[in-house]
Design a protein around this nucleic acid. Sequence first.
DNA 1: ATGAAATAGGACCCCATTAGTCGTATTTAA
DNA 2: TTAAATACGACTAATGGGGTCCTATTTCAT
Lengths: 133, 133
Amino acid sequence: MLKLSKKVEYGLIAMRHIASVNNQISTVKEISERYSIPSDVLAKVMQKLTRGKLILSHQGAMGGYTLARGAHDISVMDVIGVVEGTQVGIAQCFAETPENCSIYSNCTIKHPLGKIQHNLEQVFASMKVSEIV
Amino acid sequence: MLKLSKKVEYGLIAMRHIASVNNQISTVKEISERYSIPSDVLAKVMQKLTRGKLILSHQGAMGGYTLARGAHDISVMDVIGVVEGTQVGIAQCFAETPENCSIYSNCTIKHPLGKIQHNLEQVFASMKVSEIV
DNA sequence: ATGAAATAGGACCCCATTAGTCGTATTTAA
DNA sequence: TTAAATACGACTAATGGGGTCCTATTTCAT
């Protein structure tokens, strides 16, 4: 409950890694071996980060990834949002299909949860990749 | 990802309900019908809240539950902590068995995640049952 | 030109956790 | 003594997270 997914963890580790080598090109192989991350899983995460424009991919031999912008300009929230297609939602009522919640119409805690949700987002948004040391 | 469990939602709804009827005795039947919550599930949640000393149980006919202290003195964090036996941990490294994490020794984001974890706890701790309107 | 090294991405499976159900025992007011 | 309530363990079903496998595509280097 309330746990980050491995995908997000891997994404953060990878982003930090690239930043830590001064944004020199880094490969999935290199990162997955360095941090003991299953390479197939990491590969998919990198592809999502690419589609989300947080990193740039360089295809072909000698290829790899670099950051798309400065590490101070990418937040943990950005990574979460891109890696998980959906935005953070601590309850169904903040997901795409609120009606799917079994108690939606009778629920009395939607508004306070919304406030909590907002505060959580701020926590994630305030930490930047550059601060992950 | 990062979602509260139904148990926690049910617990919050129940706590709020009891507070909203001025702490008069409330039954599982009453609450489960009012909010369309499966009564067996709610019953177990109430038992956990009782064991966690957030509410008082009154057994036997005409029994039910009341709050154990003022609604201003019970936080969302309290409810989460009691309903989920374990504390909130956004990653394995903050659970009872950190070593279970597949990348523990090579992980570079333990410290920053710890900081985020702390901030999240503050968000949950700062909202009280009395504020759930 | 060709082969090797890299990203791109779909299909599939395993398993742990969550959510819910069922059955039974116990307590207590009327 | 009965009915209404809590207490609680055992079981099942559903969901999602995490991981593996396979193939295609791109591009550098020889």
